[in-house]
Write a protein that binds this DNA or RNA. Structure first.
Lengths: 188, 188
DNA sequence: ATCCTTCTATACCGAACGGTATATTAGCAT
DNA sequence: ATGCTAATATACCGTTCGGTATAGAAGGAT
């Protein structure tokens, strides 16, 4: 593996375990078996390294979610596909999703929240526009798109959190449950 | 206000905004208008300060939750009282709950997670034992206490997160919704 | 062969980190 | 008054922080 990829993978592991602020650049380069100038050659700064990490992984996740959230008249199926997409992504990118989740919940003035808030807003936009298109066929959903997006993502992240804590497996039954739990909030 | 309380309040504000790791002791004492030895006199270390913060606030929260979670035959009412208790606590302790939530989601090897995991386990224990007592009257709940506790707390934290982001108000209607959303997961 | 670019290491920077040795002040009990 | 304790400040500790100036390899293009 080349140095750049190696740095990214080591940084992801450390950030997700200890948190971005708690990890020093020195720690990363030692673990990666290189020296600081190499890291700074590729990423310019510690923050640049974080940004590269977020960019690469979020791009892939958002691509998947965009495909899954393409509503074509069958809302339950679309929701199921979205949940399935998230769960599948998380299974293949546990460390990244754990890091990202931690950053979402960091304080409103923190660098980590600022770094990932743009990506999360984009994901919410994707979900919101899915609900907007669905609202044309479900009159009672009108004007609640944003709220639905927040709640839906919240439920998904609940399940993912349980998975990351080894409390559930994230199988097909769980996909169904997540959709079901959310749907109940819509139709009642 | 005495120095000790002042330090606690300044630290809580900074920790909740920037994150524990991102805040320096120097920053705290400057904001509080004192010097380092004063802080170290009262709390011994930066970590000791965090522990004191967690101890004081969690003790109060857990006391409230324990009272609310005292199941006496009416599960929906008990659930409602628990949600109400959380919401009311959060309204009066926004900064603390935001900090605590961030710490819950920090990496599995981080100091912040270690600092608050004990308290969260205790809260989960309280909820779990509530569900265990309720299971005597609801046969279909048996063996799922832990999972119910996780899910219930997850939904509550969803609503709280939306509140902390100024997306909802956390009023009585929201209490009802949270209970409703969770209950659907039980009875179906 | 030489030049240019890319990549990497040695060695270092000033600043900030968490923490403390020492001394002084204030209040209180004797 | 004296001595004891709690509380506070000045000034400093060694370490680590993120980041960099400089120079040497390495490799391809001319």
């Amino acid at each position: 593996m080349d140095n750049r990829s190696n740095i990214l993978s080591v940084a992801l592991r450390l950030f997700s375990r200890l948190g971005y602020e708690a990890v020093g650049v020195q720690e990363i380069v030692e673990e990666a078996g290189i020296t600081k100038p190499t890291l700074y050659h590729y990423f310019g700064s510690k923050r640049g390294l974080l940004d590269a990490l977020l960019e690469e992984n979020f791009t892939s996740l958002m691509e998947d979610v965009r495909k899954a959230a393409d509503y074509q008249g069958d809302l339950p199926m679309t929701l199921q596909k979205v949940v399935e997409t998230f769960f599948s992504f998380v299974k293949n990118n546990k460390e990244f999703y754990r890091m990202q989740l931690a950053m979402c919940f960091s304080g409103p003035g923190s660098e980590t929240l600022e770094a990932c808030s743009g990506y999360n807003k984009e994901i919410l936009r994707i979900l919101e526009s899915m609900f907007m298109r669905a609202a044309k066929d479900h009159g009672n959903m009108k004007g609640r798109h944003r709220r639905y997006a927040f709640t839906f993502l919240g439920i998904i992240n609940n399940y993912i959190t349980l998975f990351l804590g080894s409390h559930i497996k994230l199988d097909t039954q769980e996909i169904f449950q997540a959709v079901h739990q959310f749907s109940h909030g819509i139709y009642s």
